[in-house]
């Protein structure tokens, strides 16, 4: 992740900012230029609730080089109370306790490092409630 791209994504990664369509109220996360539901292009910025449930998950045992030493870890699709679905790591978890439908909340964690001397990149991960 290079610095300008990381910087552009801060509102979503840090604050869960989404775009709510002014015409049909559909929420897009990350925000879009055109609403995928009604095709209109006017949005208001809203912050997602951060609480939801786990729709599905998998355990990553062989990861890319950037996640060396972090395996095994869980990745899942979470549906937030706002209806938004997002893909995220599930942190601090005993794999035996993960279940589809279980309640989760999003917390602020380090996502990755850009090598030994690069940026620390932060964002959201899910933990079981």
């Amino acid at each position: 992740m290079i610095s300008p791209k990381y910087h552009r994504e801060i509102p979503q990664r840090y604050r869960l900012e989404a775009g709510k369509c002014k015409a049909c109220s559909n929420i897009s996360f990350p925000p879009r230029l055109v609403c995928p539901e009604c095709g209109k292009n006017e949005f208001e910025t809203v912050r997602l609730n951060g609480e939801g449930k786990l729709l599905t998950y998998t355990i990553i045992r062989v990861a890319s080089d950037k996640f060396f030493g972090k395996t095994p870890f869980a990745v899942g699709i979470v549906e937030l109370k706002d209806g938004v679905k997002l893909t995220t790591q599930i942190a601090d978890v005993d794999f035996d306790k993960i279940k589809i439908g279980i309640k989760v909340k999003l917390v602020f964690r380090k996502i990755q490092d850009e090598g030994k001397s690069g940026l620390h990149c932060y964002g959201y991960k899910a933990v079981l409630v």
């Binding site: 790591q89 964690r109 932060y122």
Partner: peptide, 16 residues
């Protein structure tokens, strides 16, 4: 601290 926790993540959660 977890592998993904540091002074900043701890501060953010405490501040929230």
């Amino acid at each position: 601290p977890g592998l993904d926790e540091d002074t900043i993540t701890i501060s953010v959660e405490a501040a929230r």
